[in-house]
Design a protein around this nucleic acid. Sequence first.
DNA 1: TGGTCATATGACCTTACAGTCATATTATAG
DNA 2: CTATAATATGACTGTAAGGTCATATGACCA
Lengths: 214, 214
Amino acid sequence: MPKDTFFNLSEDKREKIMRAAISEFSKNGFEKGNVGNIAKSAGVAKGSMYQYFENKKELFLYSVQWSMELLVKKYNKYITMTNKDVNIFDYFYQNSKDIWVQLRDEREVVIFIQDVFLGKYSRFTDESMACMMKFSDEYILKLIQDGKSNGSIRKDIDDKLLSLFLTGVSFKFKEYLMKKARIAGEDIVDEDFEMMEKEIKAMIELLKNGMGAK
Amino acid sequence: MPKDTFFNLSEDKREKIMRAAISEFSKNGFEKGNVGNIAKSAGVAKGSMYQYFENKKELFLYSVQWSMELLVKKYNKYITMTNKDVNIFDYFYQNSKDIWVQLRDEREVVIFIQDVFLGKYSRFTDESMACMMKFSDEYILKLIQDGKSNGSIRKDIDDKLLSLFLTGVSFKFKEYLMKKARIAGEDIVDEDFEMMEKEIKAMIELLKNGMGAK
DNA sequence: TGGTCATATGACCTTACAGTCATATTATAG
DNA sequence: CTATAATATGACTGTAAGGTCATATGACCA
């Protein structure tokens, strides 16, 4: 957690610092990520960074936290998630669409967070991060159990394997969406959006009925 | 490519060096991976490492190459792959089983290579590595096209999406197998093997027919 | 205006390592 | 047995970057 000094800054300045950090870590990873650069991009002195954060690791971990909080605040990500009666396929649909929308105006933050989840910064088996992952895993598991009891998911396969199956597809598909977004560039047109929506639906069809010919 | 001096060493010594390197990079990643440590583990002087390799990056890249070659040599991985009439589901089955078997006696090498493929060392968008990935992607695509024409794979979904679907599951499942292997420890018993075989089959069932209730 | 406290700053310190090099050792040749 | 080339070695160098600190700046109060 950052020092008090950091929270005494204006919201604007804090945001500038965090965005600079996210950008640097995204580009160069944790080890090569340079605190001096971050300071420069944010328009503060390097020494100041150490008035705000204990060390580079704390800065990194707070970058993750800040990003998550930003996305939650802006898009209510986890509020929609905790609704009752969420079908796992609807969840997949919503989640994919969310990411696509978020990529429009929060490209860097979304890419950063996805990389964190995809294990690019795996040297941090930090508890807080492990906790986030576990939380997400457990949510999926719950959806699976619900799906089994309401008859939308087959019952003959172990929950753990179903979860593996779903998250595997999910991760890969997100990766793909992000690559597409990168190619599409800054502004994503409606045509891209329609295309992408079709692909999400095709993916759900595969999740439901598999790739084997019937 | 290492210098001539390296190839003048005995096979044993070369192996010792490469295994030391793989172990170090696996444990600490590329940036934190220490050439001095590698030298010490391999029982040579640090200076010698620079008689063998131009720099750390070359050492790393050759570690990848060496690992691949070892696995191919020991298990004919890519020879079985290029057989005619390979069904994509059989391929998945064989591939998963291969990894499990290989984990028994080449744990470190397999884990290293998997991490490379899973993008843990993603700062290396090296051509040679990108090439490996592309090769593997294209093989999958070919299997999908074959599957479509011989009627084992549904035709109403785009190849690219099918490939995404399959590799997503595949990656995640491999990750899972490796985690299990780590837990099982040094020696994997027959019971583990049977359990794992059941799980592979369940996964293939999901790939074929999906997770939706029928 | 002067005093006190919080914050900003960048020169400086420290450390860790990648990479070098002069020298020692060993192998090969004549 | 000597000369020469190839290789091994580890002390040394250079440098990048994380982290510190004495000092400057500015805000707030009396």
